[in-house]
Design a protein around this nucleic acid. Structure first.
Length: 310
DNA sequence: ATCCAGGTACCCA
DNA sequence: TGGGTACATGGA
């Protein structure tokens, strides 16, 4: 009988003090990756093309399907989050003169243990092209359908993420059956661009933020938001701030200083908000943004969906 | 039923 | 450059 992944011996990684806090559930469910599935046994997903399972018991990560080096690299466990938070706090104080930003602290407390992971750029790119104007459950479903139709079959009910060449030759009708709607041609054109320039995503890793962003935005279906998500979640440019409707609402609602940037324009632009966040939160502004996004539903906002004060 | 969602492309002044 | 609009789909 063929040995199943779930029967394989499990490995354990005990987190050190410097690697805490770490919250696996929050990290995998906070809207940065869309293909991890949770069950009673823990999370199942794919890292570097291999099926992996992982669960957390206190300070221990119990996993299989990858080695410890891969685990640490994928979850960025060598990032010292406590120091990172201190850097954000210092930046806030430097900018505002205030000792504490209680709104940020609320988000950081609720998002404690969240970690920005290191995704594969190609998968991240396609995923966030799929993400536009959708909610997270829909995005996950869409990507799952794409893998089922165009990815390599790995086991009974599991498929790999399709390669650029697989999507480049897909027809629009086929992609549309994956609930992609008007995004279908974007996906095909971007897959074709990567297929014809296979080193593009590797080159981007060597570019400065602004140049990297410009290169990404040349791709079909990639605007500022998608480009920034890829820069943050795949290339781990922690100073990059993706601005969606939630982040916009949170920043404009809670940080009136941002309004000064818009000049005589009607509203703050995307870059007004992103640049304010970089100035205010500093070089880990992307992390701050992700704390806000992860705790968006419970943050004290009164101008959005009737959310009440705490 | 209506509104909204990890937006972008396209068009116009 | 900034502002408007169409675009597919599913969840609330």
């Amino acid at each position: 009988m063929q040995k199943r992944k779930s029967d394989e011996v499990m490995l354990t990684c005990n987190l050190t003090e410097d690697q805490l806090p770490f919250d696996l559930d929050l990290t995998l469910s906070c809207g940065q990756a869309f293909r991890w599935e949770q069950s009673s046994a823990g999370w199942t997903g794919q890292v570097n093309g291999a099926v992996v399972t992982i669960r957390q018991e206190g300070r221990s990560l119990i996993y299989n399907g990858m080695d410890e080096e891969t685990l640490i690299r994928y979850f960025n466990l060598d990032i010292h989050v406590q120091n990172l938070l201190e850097m954000i706090r210092k930046s806030i104080t430097r900018y505002s003169g205030k000792q504490e930003d209680s709104f940020f602290e609320t988000a950081a407390r609720r998002g404690a243990g969240l970690r920005i992971i290191r995704q594969d750029p190609w998968e991240c790119l396609i995923s966030f092209i799929c993400s536009q104007n959708s909610n997270i459950p829909t995005i996950s479903r869409r990507i799952s359908l794409i893998c089922r139709q165009y990815g390599k079959k790995l086991d009974d009910n599991r498929y790999g993420f399709p390669n650029p060449a697989d999507l480049a030759v897909a027809d629009e009708g086929g992609i549309r059956t994956c609930c992609t709607g008007y995004r279908a041609p974007y996906l095909i054109r971007t897959a074709q661009a990567i297929t014809s320039d296979p080193k593009l995503l590797a080159r981007i890793d060597n570019l400065q933020d602004e140049d990297a962003r410009k290169e990404l935005m040349k791709l079909s279906g990639v605007g500022p938001k998608v480009a920034d998500c890829v820069l943050l979640f795949a290339y781990n440019r922690y100073q990059v701030v993706p601005v969606d409707v939630w982040v916009r609402t949170i920043i404009t609602g809670r940080y009136p200083q941002v309004q000064e940037r818009k000049g005589n324009r009607k509203d703050c632009s995307y870059n007004d908000i992103a640049e304010f966040c970089r100035d205010y939160f500093g070089r880990y502004a992307g992390y701050a943004q992700q704390y806000f996004f992860a705790s968006r539903l419970s943050l004290p906002l009164d101008d959005k969906l009737n959310l009440k004060n705490i």
